[in-house]
Every structure is written in C-alpha cells, then in structure tokens.
Simulated assay, not measured.
Amino acid sequence: MSIVLEKLFYGNLRPNESLQPVNSEYLSLNRKISTLIDSYHKKLSREEYDELENLIDLLGQSTSIYSSAAYTEGFRLGAMVMIEVFGGMNLKGDEQ
C-alpha cells in the first residue's frame, strides 16, 4: 500500500496541522490581530473581553468550516482534472 493511502486509512494524514503560511501579508495581519487583541484586553472589562473572545472563537469556527469546504472542493476539482488528463474523458464522461 502507498504511504499516503496508509496514512489516510489510519487517520494520520492531517494537512491542516502542518500548514504554516509564509506569506508576509499573512504574518503581518496576525501580528496586527495580536496587537489589537492585547489592546482590547487592557481596555475592556473582564465580561466585555470574554464576549470578544467568544466572538473570536465563533469566527474561528466559521473560518475552519469554510476552509474545510474549500479544501474539499479544491481536492475534488484536482481529482476531476487528473481523471480528465489521464483518462481521456471530459467532465461529462464523453470520450474525446
């Protein structure tokens, strides 16, 4: 069995855990977010800050669900491209 298929079978293939974007804009945005969160932590009451944290958690969950859907759709599209390229079929299943 191939190594990738074996990892997939045993649930050991988790690309989201090894993803580390190196885009400078991404890194800059995360620094700005951290600075703003720290600023709000100092300004807000404990209750207000807890509400802000809850909002941030909900946004994170929403982003995670969207990212998962985008990953799945991208994977499907890649597989369809491979089928078309290697199979000599178009996406409707008609031979070319």
Rank of each mutant, 00 (worst) to 15 (best):
M1E: 01
M1V: 05
S2Q: 05
I3M: 08
I3K: 13
V4D: 03
V4S: 09
L5H: 11
L5I: 12
L5E: 07
E6A: 14
F9Q: 10
F9D: 13
F9I: 05
Y10N: 13
G11P: 02
L13W: 06
L13V: 04
P15W: 00
P15A: 04
N16P: 00
N16G: 05
N16K: 13
E17N: 11
E17G: 00
E17C: 03
S18Q: 06
L19N: 14
L19T: 13
Q20M: 05
Q20L: 13
Q20E: 15
Q20D: 10
Q20Y: 13
P21F: 01
P21E: 01
P21C: 01
N23E: 04
N23A: 08
N23R: 08
E25W: 10
E25R: 12
E25A: 09
Y26N: 04
Y26G: 01
Y26E: 04
L27A: 03
L27E: 08
L27T: 04
R31T: 08
R31N: 08
R31C: 00
K32H: 00
K32P: 00
I33T: 07
I37N: 12
S39K: 15
S39E: 07
Y40M: 03
Y40K: 09
Y40T: 04
H41Q: 14
K42N: 01
K42P: 00
K42H: 07
K43T: 02
K43I: 11
K43S: 01
L44K: 09
E47M: 09
E47A: 11
E48Q: 15
Y49H: 06
D50Y: 08
E51Q: 14
L52W: 04
L52H: 01
E53D: 03
E53L: 15
N54H: 07
D57P: 00
D57L: 12
D57G: 01
L58I: 02
L58C: 06
L58W: 04
L58S: 06
G60T: 03
G60V: 00
Q61D: 06
T63D: 00
T63A: 15
S64P: 00
Y66N: 07
Y66G: 00
S68L: 15
S68Q: 14
A69W: 02
A70W: 10
Y71I: 07
T72F: 07
E73I: 02
G74R: 02
G74C: 01
G74P: 09
G74M: 02
F75C: 05
R76D: 09
L77M: 13
G78Q: 12
A79H: 14
V81C: 06
V81Q: 12
I83L: 12
I83Y: 11
E84F: 12
E84G: 10
V85K: 14
V85P: 00
V85T: 09
V85N: 12
F86A: 12
F86N: 09
F86K: 13
F86D: 08
F86H: 14
G87Q: 04
G87C: 00
G88K: 07
M89K: 11
N90M: 08
N90Q: 05
N90T: 03
N90I: 03
K92M: 11
G93F: 10
D94M: 10
E95M: 07
Q96D: 09
Q96V: 05
